[in-house]
Amino acid sequence: MDQVHHRALDALQSFIALADSGSASSPRYAANIITNATSSPHTYVFAELLERPAIQALRSPDTPAELQGYLTLLEIFAWGTWQDYQNTPNLPPLSDEQTRKLRLLTLLSLSSTIKPLTYDSLMTALSLSAPSELESLVTAAIYSSLITARLSPATTPPTVNVTSVAPLRDVKPASLPSMISTLSAWESRCGSVISDIEAEIAKIRADSAQRRSKENARAVALDKTLEKWIAQSGEQGQGGSQGSQGGLGSKKMGWKPRDLGAAIRERGFFGGGSNKREFDDDGYFEEGPNDFDPHGSGMDIDEGAGARSGTRHSKRFLGKKT
């Protein structure tokens, strides 16, 4: 649709050049420019031509009466409709090309304002007497890329379903204040919506920061509690096992909570420590040097395998051979 608008602007440039030439000082010459511009099959916008001094000179009281209506005719082609032409007196008669062009421009305006577009409403607005004439006009508009539409003559009532309209109508100067008012109101609403969105974003960020602060404080408190519990457990282990190499608290101060599971598996917190004696590579048990085995074999051997049941026999630890 934008390409159609550019083509219409390009088609108007030759008529603008004629209006800016020195020959356009004659009112009749300006009227001929208007007639040719409105009859051309490729011109659909006329605002730039309307602004030319030679065209505006037709408003002068010195303009002959039979030529004064050409400026009004050009304004109708720019932003008016077929009904405006029918209701305005003292306008020049239209050729077949101008009649078809004005009906096509009116179809553009009606397609943007009336929903649904029934055959009856369009035929009345365009002064058409038969559905075939309307269908021919709509088909021409579709092939000229003025509208995107589909004819539905079999529906009740028959309609023309328009999905898009080319931006080929000029803006009437009298409608500018209302358009500015509408755009200003829309801008105000957009500003209010943006302010609400920014306030909501700020609230979400504040809530997120507060939530992170609480989580960090909770994690710090948990770390301190676990470290204190580990230290207390180590002190209790020192009091119950004097021959050990030091309690958990004296060796593991400064542990992080992630080391708690490993500490529990290593030291056997639950159950008061391991129920099996530990020894080092030199053959000594952790309880002291009295259980040293000079053989250093690193094995536990039951003495008296055939002893009475119910009696626990002592074990002898065979150390490494030296």
Rank of each mutant, 00 (worst) to 15 (best):
D10L: 15
A11C: 04
A11F: 02
L12W: 03
F15H: 11
A37Y: 10
T43P: 12
Y44S: 09
R52Q: 15
P53R: 14
A57M: 07
A57D: 08
R59N: 13
P61S: 14
P64T: 03
E66M: 02
L73W: 11
E75R: 15
F77I: 14
W82S: 12
Q86N: 09
N90Q: 15
T106G: 05
L108R: 04
I114C: 04
I114V: 15
P116N: 10
P116F: 12
L117E: 09
T118V: 09
T118G: 09
T124P: 00
S129L: 11
S132R: 14
E133F: 05
A141C: 09
L146Q: 06
L151P: 13
P153E: 01
A154C: 00
T155H: 01
V162A: 00
L168F: 08
P173D: 03
S175H: 12
P177T: 02
P177A: 06
S184W: 00
S184L: 10
E187T: 08
C190G: 00
C190L: 13
V193A: 09
K203F: 04
I204F: 07
R205K: 14
R212G: 03
S213Y: 05
K214H: 08
A219E: 06
T225N: 07
K228M: 03
I230Y: 01
G239V: 13
G240T: 11
G240S: 14
S244N: 09
G246C: 13
G247Q: 13
M253C: 07
G261L: 12
G268V: 09
G273R: 04
D282V: 00
G288I: 02
G288Q: 07
G288K: 08
D291H: 10
F292T: 06
G296V: 04
S297V: 08
G304M: 06
R308E: 09
S314Q: 02
L318K: 08
L318W: 07
G319T: 01
